[in-house]
């Protein structure tokens, strides 16, 4: 289980190779990579700056990854999230889950992203032709995270 917050870009192929190296029980590798778009909310976006809360960010991501590990039989998990200035087509976030079978890998990957979007303290500020603006949170992200609570009986 590894969580990294970094300014540098990452290589999804190299990250996956490193994570699964020597692990012959892995039968499924699921991954999600979020990439910066050049448009949002009806306007072009030239660049963005990602701010975070050092300390809490790592704790929040570790807690989300740990919860995924309790829900599904995972062999390993990697989360990488970038901060600082990003440009269109730059990778922003990477989630990789390893499991023996695809159901666990795919579900855990989606779960981690849904919780990251609503619980990990990152904020995006976009630079558009009309000036800078903070990205507003979306209700659809809250609903995406909420769906994992359904049927828990908690």
């Amino acid at each position: 289980m590894a969580v990294r917050v970094q300014r540098e870009a990452f290589d999804i192929g190299a990250e996956i190779d490193r994570l699964r190296a020597g692990r012959t029980s892995v039968g499924a590798v699921a991954s999600f990579m979020g990439v910066m778009r050049d448009f949002n909310d009806g306007s072009g976006v030239q660049s963005m700056v990602l701010e975070h809360y050092p300390g809490m960010t790592e704790r929040a991501l570790e807690s989300i990854v740990a919860e995924a590990g309790e829900r599904w039989p995972l062999i390993d998990t990697l989360v990488v999230h970038r901060v600082g200035e990003l440009r269109p087509s730059d990778p922003i976030v990477l989630v990789v889950t390893l499991s023996a079978h695809r159901e666990a890998a795919l579900a855990a990957c989606a779960f981690i992203m849904d919780f990251l979007k609503t619980r990990a303290p990152f904020w995006k500020k976009e630079r558009t032709p009309a000036g800078e603006r903070w990205v507003e949170a979306r209700a659809s992200d809250d609903r995406a995270a909420d769906r994992w609570q359904e049927g828990d009986g908690a």
Binding site: R119, F122, W123, W134, A137
Partner: peptide
């Protein structure tokens, strides 16, 4: 750690105040 409004404060706490998060 994210906390609800009723959470009690103690001396030495670090309290962060921020808008809903927008990472990912």
């Amino acid at each position: 750690t994210l906390c609800p409004p009723a959470h009690a404060l103690s001396a030495g706490d670090e309290i962060a105040v921020f808008p809903p998060v927008t990472g990912g």
